[in-house]
């Protein structure tokens, strides 16, 4: 456990802010919403700083928190807070955000198939392809055993491959997952 909660939080925030912001922006339709999701995620981290694991594990733990905050947000349970106003404007003006489509707007055949996957499969494959987590890191982020991750990943890949085939996308070389074909 780090020395003082304040110093530890600042350290975690500085290391994890960009990965968590990336995680949220990749999953939010509206970049302005991302500001509130990021704020809520780090507020949970501050309140529960005593439970926060050390080192890079903190980032994985925060992915789990952000996932739950996003789910609440999708159910309409997240408030727009005054304190995130400046951040909302800033994110909405980021070139990396304004010049690209949100995942919902990707109408490529692979994008459509990916979007139609069950939520759990999509999140698992996203964590591999977008956050580049390996099996151990996935197990930590999702709070399940490595073996469970391997099984879920195997099934998710298989369902994705089947869905691609059904959609007429040339499989197996059409969609690559971190360099390896499905």
């Amino acid at each position: 456990m780090g020395a003082d909660p304040h110093g530890r939080f600042v350290d975690v925030y500085e290391r994890a802010y960009e990965p968590i912001l990336g995680y949220v922006l990749r999953r939010c339709r509206d970049p302005e919403d991302a500001a509130d999701v990021v704020a809520e995620t780090f507020t949970v981290a501050w309140r529960r700083i005593d439970e926060l694991p050390e080192g890079d594990e903190a980032r994985l733990w925060l992915y789990g928190v952000a996932r739950r905050v996003l789910a609440n947000h999708r159910r309409g349970e997240l408030r727009r807070e005054q304190r995130t106003e400046a951040l909302r404007e800033h994110l909405a003006s980021l070139p990396a955000v304004t010049h690209t489509r949100s995942p919902e707007e990707d109408f490529s055949p692979v994008g459509r198939v990916f979007r139609a996957l069950p939520d759990g499969d999509r999140e698992l494959l996203s964590l591999v392809a977008w956050e580049r987590l390996d099996t151990r890191q996935l197990a930590t982020a999702l709070g399940v055993s490595r073996n469970a991750v391997r099984i879920r990943l195997y099934r998710a890949r298989r369902r994705f491959a089947r869905a691609l085939a059904t959609a007429g996308v040339d499989h197996p070389h059409a969609a690559m997952l971190e360099g390896s074909s499905l």
Partner: peptide, 25 residues
């Protein structure tokens, strides 16, 4: 590559943690 479906990569956000908005939050 499935990674290309992502709107952006973490590398695109380099330096964001030290922006005034991130510090204020």
């Amino acid at each position: 590559n499935l990674a290309n479906l992502a709107r952006l990569r973490d590398e695109d956000l380099a330096g964001q943690a030290s922006t005034a908005q991130a510090r204020a939050l």
